[in-house]
Computed example of a mutant assay.
Amino acid sequence: MADTLIAQITMLYERFDPALIGALDQIYDSDVVFEDPLHRVEGLVALRRYFSGMVHGLEECGFTFNHILEQRGQAGEPDQAVLLWTMHYRHRKLKGGRRLSLEGSSHLQFRDRVLYHRDYFDAGAMLYEHIPVLGYVIGKIKARLG
């Protein structure tokens, strides 16, 4: 069951587009908790709304899964997986609409559907560094610290 669920997840996220929104109930529990560096949402309805907002401004987005680690739950605990990924995306307001890449990972806890999903990534590398004035300032700070 875990292999099937992980396969569904990776297949759906290969293209992060409006079709994913309609398929969320196939992989997420109605009481799912989703977290990333920018937001925390609880429940499938809130997750659907959050993803709909993200998809809206994207010209392209998809995930390549580089490595997957799975662990079976013990004594009533949910199964877990960590997915290491690269996200490729284009947004008309970031870097002139050029294609960007971001490395990250996801921690999932699941039974027949995902109960908990937490994404780990550098929000600055994803968004802030690509906003013209803010990106310049962040670049200067990084250069000074590095």
Rank of each mutant, 00 (worst) to 15 (best):
R40V: 14
L145E: 04
L12I: 07
L134W: 01
I27G: 00
V82M: 11
F110Q: 07
R144G: 05
F51D: 04
R92T: 07
R49T: 12
D79C: 03
D3N: 14
L44F: 05
N66A: 05
S105I: 05
P132Q: 04
H130A: 06
L100F: 02
Y28R: 02
H67T: 09
K142W: 00
D17W: 03
L38V: 13
K93Q: 10
L83E: 07
L108C: 05
L115M: 13
Y13A: 05
L100Y: 04
F63Q: 03
G62V: 09
K93A: 12
D79E: 08
G139A: 07
W85G: 00
L84I: 14
F51S: 01
E77N: 12
I6L: 13
H67K: 15
F110N: 09
L134I: 10
T4P: 00
Y136I: 04
L38W: 05
I9H: 08
E129R: 15
D36M: 08
G73W: 07
M87G: 00
G53C: 02
F34D: 01
M1A: 12
Y120Q: 09
A7H: 13
I141K: 03
H91F: 01
Q26S: 09
G146N: 12
T86C: 01
G73S: 05
I27H: 01
A46P: 03
V133I: 12
Q71W: 08
S52V: 01
N66K: 15
E70F: 01
R72C: 12
E129D: 14
R92N: 06
Q26K: 15
K93T: 10
A75R: 09
E70L: 08
F51N: 07
Y28W: 07
F63W: 14
K93D: 13
S101L: 03
L20Y: 07
L108F: 14
